[in-house]
């Protein structure tokens, strides 16, 4: 056994690398909610153009349906083949698919945290990259907390309402005069240099309000 150990170890390493690379295959994860967003629709139109240039005629609707179908089938197959190794990935909470800003969204969100005494006149407490409104900034901008409130490409995270509960409790504790807190997201547009500057009004999304009584311990 001891003489065979280098061989066995090499075999185990090759197996680990092969499984990891397979796990890391860029299996497309196309969901309808991704495609429905403006940035998703722009991508679909771009791909229709790319495919058209390659002689593959399709429409945005057809491409969307095909992409979702292929994505679902590939994901099912991928998951099934990895099933024997799933316990390892679950125990270590690791994966081999890495992405950093796969989508640079030209219509980003801007989170607004506001407080009010009467529920009518609102005071801005926190807004990212706004040195005038930095209430709770250290905690809100800590990466693991931002991961909870920062909407993904498909909208707010599922525990966003609990985030609002928490931030409301924190706000009420720090600012006894406040009776209401609301969190909402402005959708803005980044204009590229050379494009006409975006001067539209932001649209507001995912508004959640809490009163002091609602979140009292």
């Amino acid at each position: 056994m001891r003489e065979r150990w280098p061989q066995i170890r090499a075999g185990l390493i090759v197996l680990a690398v092969a499984v990891s690379l397979f796990e890391g295959c860029p299996v497309p994860n196309v969901q309808r909610r991704h495609v429905e967003r403006p940035v998703g629709q722009r991508e679909v139109r771009r791909w229709v153009g790319v495919l058209g240039a390659l002689g593959v005629e399709t429409t945005p609707e057809e491409l969307t349906e095909d992409a979702i179908a292929v994505s679902e089938a590939a994901t099912r197959r991928h998951r099934a083949l990895l099933a024997p190794f799933a316990p390892f990935f679950a125990l270590t909470q690791t994966r081999q698919r890495w992405s950093l800003f796969p989508v640079a969204d030209p219509e980003p969100w801007v989170m607004h945290l506001e407080g009010s005494r009467d529920g009518r006149a609102w005071e801005l407490l926190y807004r990212p990259v706004d040195p005038e409104h930095v209430f709770l900034r250290e905690r809100l901008e800590y990466r693991r907390v931002r991961a909870i409130w920062n909407p993904g490409t498909a909208g707010p995270r599922f525990d966003y309402p609990r985030f609002v509960d928490w931030v409301a409790r924190e706000s009420f504790a720090a600012r006894p005069e406040l009776e209401h807190v609301r969190v909402r997201f402005a959708k803005v547009r980044v204009s590229l240099p050379g494009e006409p500057p975006w001067e539209g009004e932001p649209s507001w999304h995912f508004e959640e309000r809490r009163s002091r009584a609602e979140v009292a311990p």
């Binding site: 722009r42 771009r46 640079a104 980003p108 990259v129 920062n150």
Partner: peptide, 21 residues
């Protein structure tokens, strides 16, 4: 995404640096 490629004007980094979050 196009923004990472010449077809999207290579605008990705600019857009990220403009993302307030």
């Amino acid at each position: 995404q196009g923004a990472w490629w010449p077809a999207g004007d290579g605008a990705a980094l600019y857009i990220i640096l403009r993302d307030p979050h």
